[in-house]
């Protein structure tokens, strides 16, 4: 299955959940990442049950607290 993850199109195995994708992509601070699929946010409680489909566009959003 093809997914677009953080802007890059790549091949993944079928039936991947958001939670599994977070592990595969080695996401930094995975407990605190926000995920959007096709421009819609996925609730963190639904990472395990949300299954990716062909051509889904996945973005990871990271906390950036600096500014000082």
């Amino acid at each position: 299955m093809n997914l677009i993850v953080a802007g890059a199109r790549k091949e993944y195995e079928d039936g991947l959940s958001v939670a599994e994708l977070i592990v595969i992509e080695n996401v930094e601070t995975p407990m605190y990442v926000s995920v959007s699929v096709n421009d819609e946010f996925i609730k963190s409680g639904e990472f395990e049950t949300t299954i990716m489909k062909e051509n889904d566009n996945v973005e990871f959003l990271y906390f950036m607290g600096g500014g000082e």
Binding site: T29, Y32, S34, F41, L61, F63, G65, E68
Partner: peptide, 21 residues
């Protein structure tokens, strides 16, 4: 808040002081 819901617990994610910028 749409993006991040709630602040992370203190020290759960790196700050500039700890991680640099």
């Amino acid at each position: 808040r749409c993006l991040f819901n709630n602040p992370p617990p203190p020290d759960a994610v790196p700050t500039c002081r700890q991680a640099g910028v």
